[in-house]
Design a protein around this nucleic acid. Structure first.
Lengths: 216, 216
DNA sequence: TATTATTTGTGAAGTAGTTCACAACAATTT
DNA sequence: AAATTGTTGTGAACTACTTCACAAATAATA
């Protein structure tokens, strides 16, 4: 466990993900070191922001030279917890669920979908990308049996809270939800929500209020 | 055009979307008015935050009583620009694209997918949810002809920037991208990016650094 | 009608996040 | 080997965002 004593904001974590990706590209391009200035430029940030973000977790750079690309990438992977595999379950194999199963980036990052659940008898027993679809009735015991650490919720809004409660009850501490509804989880559980309608609303806001004075 | 003279943060816009959804539920539940306290509770925010957010755009409430549910919802719809229909084009009808076409929330919010594009000859000419798939070669002229105001990018990372450039060139001012790569647009164009791998990395960060002292 | 209870709207205060600016240090050049 | 250049790491300053706190206004009650 890393002890920094300093608060880490969600924005910093988000930017670490961005740095991780840029460093992957830099590595492919053959760069050995990279300066905060270059990294900032690629992500449209300030060099100070990059240095500050990294400084929360240690001193990775060399003055006068910059950061070692391969090593920094590995360090960030460790910080983000993506230097290992995670057992993931997907609940709901509708349109969104199907797209997620095929999302190659997940596998590449070590997020391995081990189990798929649905409540539709026509889907149960079928296979998606080689993964069998299980009856959601057996949710809790299956999650435990397969040591699932991370669950993706891709079910209709109407049943989402019930499923979330069961998942939390099974001891899962991290959820990614695509259900367009407010879901409650205990404070020791992390849940992130992806709501594409809200993303669209940001865009329509900007189109509608083109000349409005707003911040980044 | 609304002139507030004050800066509106992206967080405020995001919360307006949340309020809009809560107000829809409140309306269904038969509430006539709602206090900032109640609204805040539903979204796990502070009452002051709710009032401050709304105050950027006008005075919608009545002291001692609260906000009129139906009217406030309509006002927020107007602010967000979702009191009308928007012509949307979807580029790339792979896994993600297919999921988006079926996403009912889009239609309900007035985001109408008018055109679908792909570069795969086997898909061109076929129909998805009643919408024909067009050859991406004709992108620019089709976008103009159909008055597309908003484009969703669901193509592989490798071709995303080229497509984005064409879309921008066609005069589109708002893009939603699902391509897991850094894309550049001019400053007068709004682009939002949904990257599910980054969402997963937030989760694995929290699982990995469970006891780390971090901010909301 | 007067009094009490609510709840908004907002300036002020407080907190969090970003950028500045420079000492410290490493690499390169002369 | 000294001087110059480049770049990090970080406290301080600044900016943005959130919460506080209360006057003002309305509704409910006596």
């Amino acid at each position: 466990m890393r002890i920094t004593g300093k608060r880490i904001s969600e924005s910093t974590i988000h930017r670490l993900s961005l740095y991780f990706r840029s460093l992957g590209i830099l590595e492919k391009e053959g760069y050995v070191t990279v300066s905060s200035k270059d990294l900032a430029q690629r992500e449209k940030l300030t060099p100070a922001q990059v240095r500050k973000d990294l400084s929360f977790f240690g001193q990775f750079g060399t003055r006068g030279l910059g950061y070692p690309v391969v090593e920094l990438r590995q360090q960030i992977a460790e910080i983000l917890g993506i230097n290992r595999k995670w057992n993931v379950a997907l609940i709901g194999i509708g349109n969104v669920g199907s797209a997620l199963v095929s999302f190659k980036e997940f596998i590449r990052q070590g997020f391995i979908i081990k189990l798929i659940f649905d409540n539709d008898q026509r889907k149960i027993g079928s296979f998606n990308k080689g993964i069998e679809v299980h009856d959601v009735t057996n949710l809790r015991q299956m999650l435990n049996k397969h040591n699932i650490e991370l669950v993706i919720i891709a079910v209709p809004a109407s049943v989402a809270q019930r499923i979330v409660d069961e998942v939390v009850d099974a001891g899962v501490k991290a959820l990614l939800s695509f259900a367009p509804t407010n879901l409650r989880v205990p404070s020791n559980v992390t849940m992130r929500t992806v709501n594409m309608a809200i993303e669209m609303e940001h865009l329509s806001f900007h189109l509608t209020n083109e000349n409005l004075y707003y911040t980044a």
